[in-house]
């Protein structure tokens, strides 16, 4: 269990104020709430994309407890799949995945760690296989369908072995037929990799399909814990 001891941020007309939020380190956790409740802001703050006024996030790793609030975006080693996937659209799918390995190499070097290329290549191979993107690797991402883009984005996020995976409304851009299939695939991949995930959604079907434990957010604060 990782604990967000304190998360405070001021967006002018909107504040995020969360304390002692216990995030499971297994399975899928959902942050559920209506539009404007602050769920995407919380995700951006935890990722480090937006700077929080105050963030203490105790994250157990091995026999140590890290404070991720004190680390930079890249040092947090978190994965993210945004609603619009944010693939690098001047690249092919393979180049997107290769970029993740190159980025992991830079992170290892900057943190003084040894970069084990075989390990990351293995991650890439497993992600490609699990998500079934082998056939589309050499295509430019601009020609991929929504479902294919999502699978490439998920594979890219998994290559760097993130501590936790963040999914921001990941199914909302898909049509109904593809959405059910995508939910099933994401659940299978997350179960297979064992990487904990935090999904931000307003769709209760996402929560049910992923078997997630739920936190409801309202006005930038966690209103109710673990309601499912």
């Amino acid at each position: 269990m990782s604990i967000v001891r304190r998360l405070k941020a001021n967006y002018g007309d909107f504040q995020v104020d969360i304390s002692d939020w216990q995030l499971p380190q297994k399975g899928v956790t959902a942050l559920w709430g209506p539009s404007g409740s602050g769920k995407s802001s919380v995700l951006r703050l935890l990722l480090g994309i937006d700077a929080a006024d105050e963030l203490v996030w105790e994250f157990p790793e091995g026999d140590k407890v890290l404070d991720l609030g004190r680390t930079s975006v890249r040092e947090r080693r978190l994965g993210v799949v945004f609603q619009n996937y944010e693939l690098f659209d001047h690249m092919t799918a393979r180049e997107n995945l290769d970029f993740a390995i190159e980025a992991a190499r830079q992170r290892c070097i900057s943190q003084g760690e040894k970069f084990d290329e075989t390990y990351f290549l293995g991650n890439l191979e497993r992600a490609v296989k699990a998500l079934g993107v082998g056939q589309i690797l050499d295509r430019p991402v601009t020609v991929l369908s929504g479902g294919e883009k999502q699978r490439v984005a998920l594979a890219r996020a998994l290559v760097g072995a993130p501590r936790m995976l963040f999914l921001d409304e990941p199914f909302s851009a898909l049509d109904a037929a593809n959405r059910a299939e995508a939910r099933k695939l994401v659940r299978e991949v997350l179960e297979a990799t064992g990487i904990p995930a935090l999904i931000v959604t307003h769709d209760q079907e996402d929560i049910v399909a992923l078997g997630a434990s739920v936190f409801k957010i309202a006005n930038g604060a966690i209103a109710r814990g673990n309601i499912v």
Binding site: R76, R77, G79, V80, E86, E102, A103, Q106
Partner: peptide
């Protein structure tokens, strides 16, 4: 902005 955010979460530095 989103692409830069993703690249940073992946661990990419400024030069990359």
């Amino acid at each position: 902005e989103g692409a830069v955010a993703v690249a940073q979460t992946l661990g990419a530095g400024s030069s990359l």
